[in-house]
Design a protein around this nucleic acid. Sequence first.
DNA 1: ACCTCCCTGGCC
DNA 2: GGCCAGGGAGGT
Length: 276
Amino acid sequence: MPELPEVEATRRHLEPVLVGARIAEVEVRRPRMARRQPRPADVRDRMVGRRIVALGRRGKFLLAHLDSAMTWVTHLGMSGRMSVAGRGDAESPHTNVVVRLRGGAEVRFVDPRTFGFVAVLTPQEMDEMMFRRIGPDALDDLPSTVALRRRLEGRTAPIKALLLDQQIVSGIGNIYADEILWRARIAPWRQGGSLTPDEVSAMRRAIRPVLRAGLKAGGTSLDDLAYLLPDGRAGEFVERLAVYGKQDEPCPRCGTPVERTVLRQRSAHWCPSCQS
DNA sequence: ACCTCCCTGGCC
DNA sequence: GGCCAGGGAGGT
């Protein structure tokens, strides 16, 4: 479930491999992975021969800045992960994109469900296709409580849905949204605009600690191991989850059984006793 | 401000 | 065979 912590953990693992490296060849094996590229062949053509100068991230987007001023953008979607390997190493199924580096290392984008994508964009394209569509980063650029209140004002959608709305704040997905609301003691179905100033403040104060804890653990690898770190290790935050996937198990704070409900076609987990 | 759909695999 | 899953765009 690549959300911000998984993408940032991935970024940190890839940084020493990719920064300074020159791209020798790129294979997009599933054309669908390049569907967000205005001209799909540009994914390869704009990368080959370029050097990677820095790795960044915004929300759930992994950004590799090239010496041509273009940016190689990767979104892991629902089931994507990156892996670092040597040429000829055994490949995982669903290795949909391979970026070979000069020197023999390669980065592989594995994504069974193909909801992820890659693109290589000019600065103008980055503005149009990325930055105008997503809000400030939930970890690096978290808005103040006042600014958050403004963004939630008058909104009737459930707060959980608004936390998942990448235009309000970017990087939070289904797992961490549940964990954040549990920590802030706010029920997921509450209308966004109905939160008191204290509740917005509590929610804001919960965001970074939850994301940082996830990052520190290397992210959340669920039972299916769809998400793994680039070296193949599993993230361990699953051991620290309070409510996500814990239906009928005791709330770590009060012991009440955790409930699972469906909100906006997504699962939501919460403690009926300490969240209201 | 909602659904529906995009994909594949795993589980019941 | 049907249902479920980390995300998000597109259409109504």
